[in-house]
Each structure stands twice: as structure tokens, then as C-alpha cells.
Design a protein around this nucleic acid. Structure first.
Length: 968
RNA sequence: GCUCGGGUGGCGAAACUGGUUAGACGCAAAAGACUUAAAAUCUUUCGACCGAAAGGUUAUGCGGGUUCGACUCCCGCCCCGAGCACCA
């Protein structure tokens, strides 16, 4: 037998596959189809990243297994080739990005081919190929015709150095991704795609998909569906009504002001009437120039300005409330106006505190003390009451009362008497109960809380409406207390950490502690309504719609998702195929004029005014209107790089069609992508965008399904050694070519699949590659042990009693144990591949190899099963051995091994004997042995039996074939 | 702050729906064999503590709980990663 020579073997088989094209597929109505997809790469100048193969190989294993299971598998690849790097390079060097792109994708192709991935190269596509982007443009025009593509004046991110607009994803921490300059805002007309029209379906139809739960959740968060009420606030002395959106109409009686976004449509008119016009104008101007991060950072203090003289009328109680402008209200969400309820909204609370606006509580949380609940038959007494928290500023300790007749510790507590407010009642109670006089009042901890408990000291059920006042000791803590009081309880000082639900008798303690620790005391939880007219004492949650109806509001659904800004002022993208005609306005190009090709330009940089370089080519820009033949100008914006990838999986079905983006029959045959693997970073952009395009095409009757992908999974990133990101600047990049050269593609594949769980980020570890290589060499060397024909049991030389709890392949010394192990391994590998648990699939095969190695010989049958299981992981060397074993056909056309359920277990098993949960021994028994048999067996074994002598058996737990636990 | 993941040996990690002595498999390390030597290969050891050994104790981020039995379930807390972030 020869030495394992990965170079020779891998180039040999790659040449064969190149010639025979075993992975080329056609529609075949007799076979069930399987469409496997990975995200097609952007062919960057840096070459293939070591992370790319992780996804490709993972899906390759699945694709190869599905082929072996008899499915008609399409596993295509192509190039998502519009993108920034090639364009930046073009700006710098003047070389056409098409040239760079071709060069890069050729490199990628060579690299990917060296990995032996079973792609169908006959379906290769390139988004920058005019034959491809013809259809990207065509689909855009369908959007336009359906009214879903429109132009709108937008504030966009603008880089003053690069003179270009930036997409949101190109802005990193408020700075330009490329040059680091702080991004400004600029108004510009932009093409938009109305993805919001599909928000509801994009959310709901996730139910139909088999995406990973975390992907669904992340998409749902991004879409941001929320239900609430739209309510009109009449402006006093004006016929206009301010429409607000709120998810908490139950708090309507707590509105103490109304806030408009500075961009709100009424502002222009209202400003004429205000008495502080200059201030308001100044504020609007400021908020316009503020950068996006300054404005949206939740940490920065809220700002605003009152529209003095303007009042809005609360439709619930006809109260007049002030109207403010503040940029914490977003113009493009909801209605651009909110009703402010500072008592029950944290943002409104901050704003109200800053500008000293009224805070009115309308929802009272409820707590029932389950440790001291109401006692049946005792009278129920309602009381308005206070508790006082007194803090010693020197050591942070809190004054509490330790009760003498009850096992209680409480805060200072008592009723509110006639004419008292929270502070005066608290001061009186503190004086009575502790004698302390010198106190500084700090604040009241939010609104009232309803608390139900049994007051043992008064022998009555209590319903208390509590408020809490916070004081600080302002001088001496001493004082005299009446005998009456000191018999009831004594004051003690406790650390804040010792004030816990288990140490205090206070059912609503969680609320007070939260309010004590947070300056923002807005209470956002549900409860009973107070100060709310006829809705008082109703449950806040259930009264939402009723209140909405009461004021003539409307129940509506809103989304966080915004329409997709679809234009860029750059060269390297699909030209938007419309003209601007002086007479006819925006006119789409007729289909026969597609593709509208990118013209040649001298300079790839955007113009001074921030237009795409296309704008500077007069010959190209000036054209005729297709409709009226009059003078017209071409659109000079291009599409974002998400355009081509929004439908590429459809083009794979029919990549060369020039009559349609894909043939209907082929679309029908291939249908949905069965399994799509990609990175989590594309969850809210590419994945959402392509679902949107697909749904639109479905509505147009152009595709047969409403969802593009049946199943979506994700892979983890590969990090550099040490856990950092790989990057050129850090100098820690691993080049896949080097690995393929030194240890081979099969080893790289095994290593990447074995390194850790597939969906988890993991650091590269050069040491561990040796393990993958060793495994392959072991399998290679097993060729020496192959016996054609029967192998006697003694030749196996199996280890026995090889059993641990966690080993799913454990053996029990059965004479046929290798056979059992083989079947277990088939089961394990088969199932693990489906779950993308490639690491444990490989470990299962390693266990099998280790066992075979211990014997003197292995049957051809068993060895071939191992090779077939391993072939999707390491396709080259398994093919070589397969040929060495005198097989005529390729291993990759073999059927996937099947396991026999009956052969998975031997009939004798070790049953664990536990006494009081501790393992005291093992007994051998038939797998079907019942409890009484096992108990009889135990009696025979003195080592176990000694634990049972003279002991009363309280309980026996028996699990067939597994364990017996005797409780004594 | 919110939403999702995670926290297990020196390291990457296993452990089916709570049930066959936690740590499979691999890496690293140590000792030995082979070798003039090294590499490769093979054999053995390898959570911690006590012990000469047999064996015992302890151990899955921390603190409680449920259970005959908990990495797995429940409550509270801490830490790490990812995403979102004034969305009313």
C-alpha cells in the first residue's frame, strides 16, 4: 500500500470530476428534487476566506448525502459581484471594476474547486453580467409598474469627504466606513421600495417556514409589529387635530402634554401662533443639523421646546395640555406625535422631570402578599397608607422596624390621616415609631401601589393603598419613643443588601426597591386605573379598546420596518432603467431596451454634487423618451448591492434563459430552496429583502411559492487563533490555499467540520488540524486490514466492556459488537448530518475507526460502510480507496448506508444498581429483564447486598434495561 | 435598557425527551517503546482534593428549590457573546 499522498489523490479526482461533471443536474420528474443553497460569495481581492468553506462544506455534506439517498440535488454557486471594494479600487486606479471582478472570481473559482465541493458549475451566475442584471432591472420595473418603487425626498447619510451618499450599513458609529469622516445629513431624492406594504406578511408567513427560531425572532424584532390606538387631540382654537399613536390608550387620563416631532406637518402652521417663535425655530434648526447618532442615542439627554400658546385637548377629560416639540419623537414612526404620560412611560418621565411638567398617576400596580394572605372570615379594612424609607447618608443603611410580637421586619409604616400628604404623614409616623426628627425629605417613590395582606397585629385583612417617601437622616438618629410603640417594635438599621423579600414583610417590596434604585420612577406595568373618570378601578390591560372607542380612536397596527432606500450614487451597480422625460415624467425603459448596460467612464468617483459618475457622461444621460420621443434624461442612480442577491436563487434554476428570468416549468420543478445556509449577519438585510422580492413576484404570478426558502440555518464565524477577528491589518489571516497545499482539502474539510458546533463562532487552531489529518491517515491505513470474505470473530480482537454513560455507541462485550457499532455509527452519522452536528458525526466515525484498528482484520463490508459514511466529509481520499478496493463506479454514486434498528442493541446490558442514588454496582442482565429478576440478581452479589442488610426498603425505582435505584 | 444565545478539565468540546459511575471524540502535556538522534508511529497517564493502594470526598458560573436521582426542570443573581436600541 502506498503512503497517503493528498496532492496526488486530490488533483487526480478533481480532474475526473471536472471532466465527468457528476454534479450537473437536470429537471427529472421521476426523482424528488432537493435544492441546497449557500450564500454566493462576493469575490473580493483578498481571495477566499477560510470561513467560506465552513458553510460550503457543511452544505456539501448534506447535498452529497441527499444524492446518496436518491434525491435529484441542485447545489449551485455564483458571484455576488457588485460591491464596494472593487469600486473603491476603480476610483483609485481607474481600472474598470468589471476587469477586477473577473480576475477575482476566477481566483475564487480555482480555490473553491480545490476543495472538492459538489457544486453544479454549469449553473454559475454573476450578478454583474448584463445577461443577469437585465432581469434585476426587469424585476425593478415590475415594482415600478406596481407602484411599489417610488421616488422620495429623503435625508440620507452623506460623507463630505467622499462626496457620496452612504447606505445605513455603510455608516459605522456615525462615521464613513471608508474614510472615517463624520457623516452628515443631506436631503436627496431617493428611489424607495415599499417593503412596508409587505410587513404584515413578512412577519406572519415566518410561521410557514422552517427557519431557526432565533432567525425568526430576529426578523420579527426588525419588522417590529405593534398594536395600539390612534387618538385625535383637537388643537384649541384650530380645526386641526393632532393624531397620536399609543400602545397604552389605558393611560389616556394621565396625559399631561403632547409632543410633536420637529418635522411634524403641523409645525409650519402652528409656529405662526406661538409666543416663543425664535426659540422654536432655533430648536427645529438644531435638530435638523444634529447627526443621526447624536439624535437617536438613548443615553443623551432629551431636549425639546414648548409651543407656547398652543394647547391640545385631551379627548378623555377635555383638559387642555401643553404641546411640545422634541426630537425624541421620531417623525417616521407612528404618526410623528405622541401623547405623553410621564407617570407610565420612561421617556416621558425623563422629559417631564427635566422641564418640570406634571406627572399624573393613572395606573396602580397590585401586589398580593402570598406569605401573609387574607384570612377567610376576617373583616377587610381599606386604608390609605404610607411607608417611609430612611437612609443614613454616611453608611447607606436603611432604618427598619423589627416587630416584637410578629416575625416581621418592615419599613416605617402607617395610615394617612385627614389633611396629611405623603410627606407629613411619613414624618409623623417616623416620629411616633422611632422618635427621629431630623430628616431631609428626598422624594416620593412614584405612584401608589395596592397591596393586600393580613395584618396580624390588628387581626384584620388589609387592603392598603401605599405611597413611599424617601428621607435621609439629617443629624442625630436618636429620639424617644412612647412605651406603647417601643413594645410593638424596635428600630434597626439594615444594609440595602439585607432588604430582600425573604427578610422583609412587604408584598410589594420589588416595586419599592426598583424605584429606590432608579431615578426614573415611571411605572410601566399594568394595574388598576385611578384618576380616570368612569374607568376607575378597572384593569388597565383589558380596558384599552374600551377607552379607545370612548374617545373615537382607532385600533391600528404599526411596524418599525421602513421602506427600503433603493438608490445609490455610485458606478458599480445596476443602472436604474428609467428616464426622466420633460413631458411624461418618470418613464420605464421598454423590455427590449434591457439590459441597460453600464457605460464606460473615465472617472469612477462620484461628482462634486454627490451624483453618481454616470451623471457626468452627457452622451449617455441625454436620451429620448421611449414614450413621446421627446428630450429625456436617464436616471443616474444605481441599485444597492442587495438587488442582485434578492432573486439569484431563482436564476440558478434556469441561468441561461434570455426570454425570462427563469422558465415557468423549471421554477415549478425546483420550487422552494429546500435548505439555505448562511450567516446570521444577513438575517435582517438579504434574507428579509429576498423574501420581500419573492412575495412580490408571487403576487405577480411569476413564481409558484410565496416563500423562497423552506429551511434556513446559520453557521458560525471562524476567528483567528486567539479569538480575534481575522483581518489583513492584524496579520492573522489563514489562507485556505496553504492548508490545502500542506495537508489537503479532505483534512481541511474534516478539520472545519470537527472544530466545534457548526453554528458557533470558533477560533482557528493549527494544532488541531493534525488530529484531522491523523484520522484520515488511520482510515487510509485500514486498507491493510481489509479481508475479502468472512472475518472470524477472533480476528476482530474487540475491546469489551467499553461503556460509559455518555457514549452513544457503547458496547457491551457482545460477540457481534463491531456489527452493532457499525449500525450505531450509521444511525449517528445519518442523524447528525441532518442536524448539522458534523462534529459529533465525525467523532462517531473516529470511535468506529479506533475499534476497527484494535482488531487484526476488518471485513470489506464494514470498511466500505465506513467509507460511504465518510465520503461526504472527505470526498477525495474515500474515492481513491474505493477504487483501490476494485469498485468500478464512484463512491459518490453509492446508496447511503442503512442501519438495522434490530442491530443497534445487544440483548445483554449492564444495569446500574443505585442505593439511595449512589452507584454501588452493575449487574449483567437481559435487556428485557424485569424488576423482580433484577432484585433477585442483586441478592446474589454480596458487594451490593451488604448495603441492604438490615435495611428497610422504602422505595424502588426501576427503569428497564438501565438502572435500579433502591431507597432505604 | 430590551431580545436571543452561552457559561462543563490546560484547550475545542460530548452527554438522547431528568436515568448505564459527568468530561465521549480530538488537541496539548507527561512517561515509556522504536531510533545513533530527531520527527513520525505505538503504549500508558491525564478534573480537583485526600490516600502507598483499595478506596473516599468533591466537581458542570454563583445561591436556593423540586426529585429516589439535576449539566438537564423552577426561582434569584453574576459573567461572556450576538443583535436591536428614544419605535410611544
Amino acid at each position: 500500500m502506498n503512503e497517503y499522498d493528498h496532492k496526488k489523490i486530490e488533483t487526480k479526482w478533481q480532474k475526473v470530476w471536472e471532466k465527468k461533471k457528476p454534479n450537473k443536474v437536470k429537471e427529472d420528474s421521476k426523482k424528488k428534487k432537493f435544492y441546497a443553497l449557500i450564500e454566493f460569495p462576493y469575490p473580493s481581492g483578498a481571495g477566499l476566506h477560510i470561513g467560506h468553506p465552513r458553510s460550503y462544506v457543511g452544505m456539501d455534506i448534506i447535498a452529497r448525502k441527499k444524492r446518496a439517498e436518491g434525491l435529484n440535488v441542485m447545489y449551485p454557486i455564483g458571484w455576488d459581484a457588485f460591491g464596494l471594494p472593487a469600486e473603491n479600487y476603480a476610483i483609485k486606479t481607474g481600472i474598470n471594476p468589471a476587469i477586477i471582478t473577473k480576475k477575482n472570481s476566477d481566483t475564487f473559482k480555482k480555490q473553491i474547486k480545490s476543495l472538492g465541493i459538489s457544486f453544479d458549475w454549469s449553473r454559475e451566475i454573476d450578478t454583474t453580467d448584463p445577461k443577469y442584471y437585465k432581469w434585476t432591472q426587469w424585476i425593478f420595473l415590475q415594482f415600478l409598474k406596481a407602484g411599489l418603487a417610488y421616488k422620495k425626498k429623503m435625508t440620507i447619510n452623506w460623507c463630505p469627504k467622499d462626496l457620496t451618499g452612504l447606505a445605513n450599513e455603510e455608516v459605522i458609529n456615525g462615521c464613513c466606513e471608508r474614510c472615517g469622516t463624520k457623516v452628515e445629513k443631506k436631503e436627496k431624492e431617493q428611489w424607495m421600495l415599499a417593503i412596508t406594504k409587505y410587513a404584515e406578511r413578512l412577519d406572519k408567513d415566518l410561521d410557514e417556514t422552517d427557519f431557526l427560531e432565533k432567525i425568526k425572532i430576529q426578523q420579527r424584532n426588525w419588522i417590529g409589529k405593534s398594536e395600539g390606538a390612534e387618538i385625535d387631540f383637537q388643537i384649541k382654537g384650530n380645526d386641526k387635530k393632532i393624531k397620536v399613536f399609543t400602545t397604552r390608550p389605558d393611560t389616556l387620563f394621565g396625559v399631561t402634554y403632547v409632543v410633536l416631532a420637529p418635522e411634524h406637518e403641523f409645525v409650519g402652521e402652528l409656529i405662526a401662533k406661538v409666543s416663543n417663535k425664535a426659540d422654536v425655530e432655533k430648536y427645529i434648526k438644531e435638530s435638523k443639523t444634529k447627526s443621526e447618532i447624536d439624535r437617536t442615542d438613548a443615553k443623551t439627554e432629551k431636549t425639546g421646546v414648548e409651543l407656547k400658546g398652543v394647547k391640545a385637548i385631551n379627548p378623555a377629560n377635555n383638559e387642555e395640555v401643553p404641546v411640545w416639540l422634541a426630537d425624541y419623537v421620531l417623525a417616521d414612526y407612528g404618526t410623528g406625535a405622541v401623547m405623553a404620560v410621564p407617570a407610565h412611560d420612561e421617556r416621558d418621565w425623563d422629559f417631564a422631570k427635566k422641564y418640570r411638567l406634571e406627572i399624573r398617576d393613572v395606573v396602580m400596580p397590585v401586589r398580593i402578599d402570598y406569605i401573609n394572605p387574607h384570612v377567610a372570615g376576617k373583616k377587610v379594612v381599606e386604608r390609605k397608607a404610607i411607608q417611609a424609607i430612611i437612609r443614613n447618608p454616611k453608611n447607606g443603611k436603611i432604618l427598619c422596624l423589627k416587630w416584637k410580637k410578629q416575625p416581621w421586619t418592615t419599613f416605617v409604616v402607617g395610615g394617612v390621616e385627614e389633611g396629611e400628604n405623603v410627606e407629613t404623614a411619613a414624618r409623623r409616623e417616623i416620629l411616633e415609631e422611632t422618635g427621629i426628627k431630623d430628616l431631609k425629605f428626598i422624594r416620593i417613590l412614584g405612584g401608589p401601589v395596592k397591596s393586600e395582606f393580613f395584618a396580624a397585629h390588628k387581626d384584620e385583612n388589609r387592603v392598603a393603598y401605599f405611597n413611599v417617601a424617601l428621607f435621609e437622616l439629617d443629624g442625630d438618629a436618636s429620639g424617644t419613643v412612647s412605651k406603647d410603640e417601643s413594645e410593638k417594635h424596635e428600630p434597626i438599621w439594615l444594609d440595602l443588601k439585607d432588604i430582600r423579600p425573604d427578610t422583609m414583610r412587604c408584598g410589594e417590596l420589588d416595586i419599592w426597591l426598583h424605584r429606590l434604585n432608579n431615578l426614573n420612577n415611571a411605572s410601566t406595568e399594568k394595574g388598576l386605573l385611578i384618576n380616570s373618570g368612569k374607568f376607575n378601578s378597572k384593569d388597565s390591560e383589558s380596558v384599552k379598546q374600551e377607552i379607545t372607542e370612548f374617545v373615537g380612536g382607532k385600533w391600528v397596527t404599526k411596524f418599525k420596518l421602513r421602506d427600503w432606500i433603493f438608490s445609490r450614487q455610485r458606478y458599480w451597480g445596476e443602472p436604474i432603467p428609467v428616464v426622466h422625460c420633460e413631458k411624461c415624467g418618470i418613464v420605464p425603459l421598454p423590455d427590449k431596451e434591457l439590459p441597460l448596460k453600464l457605460p464606460k467612464v473615465k472617472n469612477y468617483a462620484p461628482t462634486e454634487s454627490g451624483e453618481s459618475p454616470l451623471a457626468s457622461i452627457d452622451k449617455w444621460v441625454n436620451t429620448k423618451c421611449p414614450k413621446c420621443k421627446g428630450k429625456a434624461k436617464r436616471e443616474t442612480d444605481t441599485m444597492p448591492n442587495w438587488a442582485g442577491s434578492s432573486w439569484y436563487y431563482l436564476r440558478y434554476m434556469d441561468p441561461k434563459n434570455n426570454k425570462a428570468f427563469a422558465d415557468k416549468k423549471k421554477l415549478k420543478y425546483w420550487g422552494q430552496v429546500d435548505w439555505y445556509n448562511g450567516g446570521m449577519e444577513h438575517t435582517t438585510l438579504h434574507l428579509l429583502y429576498s423574501r420581500f422580492w419573492h412575495k412580490f413576484l408571487f403576487d405577480q404570478g411569476l413564481v409558484p411559492t410565496s416563500e423562497p426558502y423552506k429551511k434556513r440555518t446559520s453557521h458560525g464565524m471562524i476567528l483567528a487563533e486567539g479569538g480575534e477577528k481575522m483581518s489583513k491589518s492584524r496579520g492573522n489571516v489563514i489562507n485556505p490555499d496553504d492548508i490545502v497545499k500542506t495537508v489537503g482539502a479532505d483534512t481541511l474539510r474534516i478539520y472545519e467540520m470537527f472544530m466545534g458546533p457548526f453554528d458557533q463562532a470558533i477560533a482557528w487552531d493549527t494544532n488541531n488540524i493534525a488530529g484531522a489529518r491523523r484520522f484520515i491517515e488511520k482510515v487510509w491505513k485500514l486498507q491493510e486490514k481489509v479481508v475479502f470474505g468472512n472475518v472470524s470473530a477472533s480476528d476482530y480482537g474487540l475491546s469489551t466492556g467499553y461503556a460509559t454513560k455518555t457514549d452513544p455507541l457503547s458496547l457491551r462485550g457482545h460477540s457481534d459488537s463491531l456489527n452493532i457499532l457499525v449500525h450505531k455509527t450509521i444511525k449517528k452519522v445519518t442523524e447528525d448530518i441532518e442536524d448539522m452536528k458534523f462534529n459529533t458525526a465525525i467523532s462517531g466515525m473516529m470511535i468506529l475507526v479506533n475499534e476497527i484498528e484494535k482488531g487484526k482484520a476488518v471485513s470489506k463490508e464494514h470498511y466500505e460502510i465506513l467509507l460511504r459514511l465518510l465520503s461526504p466529509f472527505a470526498p477525495h481520499f474515500t474515492e481513491e480507496i474505493w477504487a483501490n478496493l476494485k469498485n468500478k463506479k464512484s463512491i459518490h454514486t453509492e446508496k447511503w448506508p442503512k442501519y438495522d434498528e434490530k442491530k443497534l442493541v445487544s440483548d445483554t446490558v449492564s444495569i446500574m444498581v443505585q442505593i439511595n442514588g449512589k452507584v454501588r454496582g452493575m449487574i449483567e442482565a437481559n435487556i428485557e429483564a424485569d424488576e423482580s429478576f433484577v432484585r433477585e440478581e442483586i441478592k446474589k452479589i454480596s458487594e451490593i447486598n451488604k448495603w441492604l442488610v438490615d435495611k428497610e426498603i422504602k422505595k424502588v425505582i426501576f427503569i428497564k434495561g438501565k438502572l435500579i435505584n433502591i431507597v432505604i
